[in-house]
Design a protein around this nucleic acid. Structure first.
Lengths: 256, 256
DNA sequence: GCAAAAGTGTTATTTATACACCCATGC
DNA sequence: GCATGGGTGTATAAATAACACTTTTGC
């Protein structure tokens, strides 16, 4: 990019650093879990945080998010970004931007948070400069139990708030979209999909009505022809995500 | 803010400028309309654009958005920001962030777009350095008719895309929240609220079923006791927005 | 009286809910 | 056989959609 025009008056634009932070969610052992990494450097050295990093000079925001995701987990994405989806592909979307002047003690940093929904993975593959990575059930990080500090000390920066916003987005978005399938392997059963909803919402759903609902929504599920007994019991049909992204009518989340 | 810690390694964080852009929507003469301003300086000098400006050094993002809104329109906000609501108060929320490396020809600018929903105002009050401001029906800016350039030349930067995202957000959000009342004056009738839905969605709604629905949703509307005949016909009860923000069950947008 | 907008009643249709019940496998 | 999860049927309740009809104003 050649600046053909004179640059802006410098006093008009205080310099910011821009980062991307990632809320990476999956369902593990019936619990909605988030990926956290241990910080290797100040500030908040040694504390758990969301994965993320600085946006590079010539990089789009979604690009930066996908790069950080790949660097820190080995995950690739479909969704708004690329479509060279390999074995494990995850959904990525922008979540929100956090810019409190004091959110980073060192300098003015604006963080563009992204939400990633991923299937249950073999194991987190920490890479680069992070000192460790793990999946933690979100209740231990944002719920009331997160305050007693039993499982984890509070997340660095404003990451608890960002995580809470990401969890809320995921919980509401699976109501009216087919995004819950992003938590499933490529082929899955109706029961497995139901257990995703139950884990994300923290409720119990009627298996019979759920089955009718999802199989009756056009474009939601595509039968692959195969069956499996990996959950025990009678063999279940295997499905993959159909093309539809919006569910109409939506899945109804039971009242509290 | 005193940097007690040594600053980050400069090579790690390329400097960005951060701006806020505003999608300010209202309903005027049965049409969903957006506020646009004429740019007084390069780049895109003389072209129409969304109102906005640089975020200051010690300013939060929502704060910057509220400031720009007040500067360029005289509007104040309730919602996530302050609550010193004067005569005309508008709803403000963050929309999304746009950071394509080439979106501004001069330098790397990340824009945090905000969505503002305002009641029909007396007149736009352009202030500061803008060369003019007006309300334009959104179809003339983002619809298929926007391409023939009859009404307006294309908006500056990526503002057409930002506006389209804001319109889409408003259209879907009035389905499941009470936000449509932000388009109404403080006191309004059921018919006026229905015409807001009709304008935003571009559909016709059954006045009888609409009336039952909104008056039957607890917390949506609060009767003020007064009546008005300003729309003609039989006097209509006046309401103000009730406390509820989420509508359950939602308003149903008729299929295309 | 007449037009216009507000508001109520009624009915058919669709959708959600809560179950009873049968099916096909592993052990 | 029996436990386990998969899947179908059905009755009831609730929400939606369509529209006839009455009410209260301005002119």
């Amino acid at each position: 990019m050649i600046p053909a025009m004179p640059p802006y008056e410098p006093s008009a634009y205080p310099p910011f650093a821009v980062t991307v932070d990632l809320v990476v969610l999956t369902v593990r052992r019936h619990a909605l879990s988030a990926l956290i990494v241990r910080r290797g450097e100040a500030p908040f050295q040694g504390r758990w945080a969301l994965p993320g990093g600085f946006v590079r000079a010539e990089e789009d925001l979604a690009e930066a998010a996908a790069r950080e995701l790949a660097e820190e987990t080995g995950l690739h994405t479909h969704g708004p970004v690329a479509d060279d989806a390999p074995a494990y592909a995850a959904h990525l979307e922008q979540l929100a931007t956090y810019g409190d002047p004091k959110r980073d003690p060192r300098m003015r940093v604006v963080s563009v948070a992204h939400l990633v929904l991923a299937p249950d993975l073999p194991a987190p593959r920490p890479g680069g400069d992070v000192g460790g990575a793990r999946w933690a059930p979100v209740e231990t990080l944002v719920g009331p139990a997160a305050d007693d500090g039993q499982e984890h000390p509070p997340l660095a920066f404003d990451h608890r708030r960002i995580l809470a916003d990401g969890v809320e987005r995921a919980r509401s978005k699976i109501e009216y979209s087919s995004l819950a399938t992003a938590f499933c392997p490529q082929e899955f059963t109706v029961g497995e999909l139901r257990r995703v909803y139950e884990a994300v919402w923290g409720v119990a759903l009627d298996p019979r009505n759920f089955h009718r609902k999802v199989t009756g929504t056009p474009g939601f599920l595509l039968p692959t022809g195969g069956t499996t007994t990996r959950q025990g019991g009678r063999p279940a049909q295997l499905f993959q995500a159909g093309g539809a992204t919006l569910l109409n009518p939506p899945m109804l989340r039971p009242e509290v």
